[in-house]
C-alpha cells in the first residue's frame, strides 16, 4: 500500500490539473454571471466532499459507540441494512423530487449500507476513532473552502459578502460544530474524549441533511440545487463539475490516508513514551 501512495499522488495531481483546465478554459461562460460563475466548480465540489467526509465521520463515530458491545453492534448493523432497504424501496415506490432519478436515490441507499459494512470490515473499533477524527479534520478544511469561496462569489453576484439566510447560516453552524469537535479532541486528555467526541459527531451529522435540504424547505437567497430541486445546468458544465468533484474526492482520499497514518504513528509514539516514563519511574530509587 505504501508503494501505491506516490502513484496515486501523481495521478491525483494530473486529475486536479485537468479539472482546473476544464473549469477555467473548457467550461462555457455563464451568460448572466460571466466568469465569476466558474467559482462554482470549486465551491460546490468542496461542499459535496465535505458532506461525504462528515458522513464518514458519522458512520465511524456510530461504530465506535456501538462496537463496544456485540449486542449494540448487531443492532447497528441491522439498522444500516434497514436504512439501505428503506431508501431503495422509497426510491421506487414513493415520488422523488423532480429532476432526481429513482435509480440515483436507490444507489445512494446501497452506498450508505455498503460504506457502513466496508468501514466495519476494514477498521477495528480503535481505528474507527482515528478514522472519525481524520475525516472530521479534512472535512473542516473543505467546509472552510466552501465558507471562503461562497462570499467571494456572492460579492459580485448579490452585491453583498454575506447574508444570514438559512443555507449560509446552517453551513456556518455546521463548520462551528466540527471545529468544536476538533477542539475537544485536541485539548481534552480525558479517557472519555473519544466517547464524547463520537456523541458530538452524531449531533453534527444531523446538521448535514439540514444544510443540504435548507434550500428546498426555506426561501433562501442561495441558488437552488443543480441536481434535483428545480435547478438546471448545461450538460457541459455538469461534466466539468463532475470532473472537479472526482479530482477533489481523490485529493481528499489522499489527505485522509496521510493523516490517518500520521495519527496512528502519533498514538504509537505516545504509547511508547508512556511506557518509557513508566519504566523510568520504576527504575528511579524510592
Amino acid at each position: 500500500m505504501k508503494k501505491a501512495f506516490p502513484i496515486l499522488g501523481i495521478l491525483t495531481a494530473i486529475v486536479l490539473s485537468y479539472a482546473l483546465y476544464q473549469a477555467l478554459v473548457v467550461a462555457p461562460t455563464e451568460q448572466t454571471m460571466g466568469e465569476v460563475q466558474r467559482i462554482f466548480y470549486y465551491h460546490v465540489t468542496s461542499a459535496w466532499t465535505a458532506f461525504i467526509l462528515f458522513f464518514i465521520n458519522f458512520i465511524a463515530s456510530v461504530q465506535y459507540l456501538c462496537r463496544s458491545n456485540s449486542g449494540t453492534d448487531r443492532i447497528a448493523s441491522g439498522v444500516a441494512i434497514a436504512v439501505g432497504a428503506i431508501v431503495v424501496a422509497a426510491a421506487f415506490f414513493t415520488p422523488v423530487p423532480s429532476g432526481v432519478r429513482p435509480s440515483a436515490v436507490a444507489t445512494t441507499g446501497l452506498l450508505i449500507t455498503g460504506l457502513y459494512f466496508l468501514i466495519h470490515s476494514r477498521f477495528s473499533r480503535a481505528d474507527t476513532d482515528v478514522l472519525a477524527m481524520v475525516s472530521a479534520e479534512v472535512g473542516v478544511v473543505f467546509c472552510t473552502i466552501v465558507l471562503v469561496t461562497g462570499p467571494i462569489w456572492a460579492r459580485p453576484v448579490w452585491g453583498i459578502w454575506w447574508t444570514w439566510d438559512m443555507r449560509l447560516t446552517s453551513t456556518l453552524v455546521l463548520w462551528l460544530i466540527y471545529v468544536s469537535y476538533l477542539v475537544l479532541r485536541r485539548f481534552s486528555s480525558s479517557g472519555e474524549t473519544p466517547l464524547l467526541a463520537a456523541t458530538l459527531a452524531i449531533f453534527g451529522a444531523l446538521c448535514v441533511p439540514f444544510v443540504y435540504f435548507s434550500i428546498w424547505f426555506f426561501r433562501t437567497q442561495h441558488p437552488q440545487p443543480v441536481i434535483g430541486g428545480g435547478g438546471s445546468i448545461d450538460p457541459r458544465m455538469m461534466h466539468v463539475l463532475l470532473i472537479n468533484w472526482l479530482a477533489f474526492s481523490c485529493f481528499a482520499f489522499l489527505i485522509c490516508w496521510s493523516r490517518y497514518r500520521l495519527e496512528k504513528l502519533q498514538r504509537e509514539v505516545e504509547q511508547a513514551q508512556a511506557m518509557e516514563s513508566l519504566t523510568q519511574s520504576s527504575r528511579s530509587p524510592r
Binding site: 482546473l20 477555467l24 460571466g34 466568469e35 465569476v36 466558474r38 467559482i39 470549486y42 465551491h43 468542496s46 478544511v141 472552510t144 473552502i145 471562503v148 469561496t149 467571494i152 462569489w153 460579492r155 459580485p156 485529493f251 489527505i255 496521510s258 493523516r259 500520521l262 504513528l265 502519533q266 509514539v269
Partner: peptide, 29 residues
C-alpha cells in the same frame, strides 16, 4: 475576473496550509 482568481487562490492556499501543518506534525513526530 479578479473574484475568480481570489476564490481559486484562496482554495489552494487553504489546502497548501493544511498540507504544511501535516508536514510539520510529521517532522515533529
Amino acid at each position: 475576473n479578479g473574484y475568480l482568481i481570489a476564490a481559486y487562490t484562496a482554495t489552494w492556499i487553504i489546502h497548501i496550509a493544511y498540507l504544511l501543518t501535516l508536514v510539520s506534525r510529521y517532522s515533529r513526530l
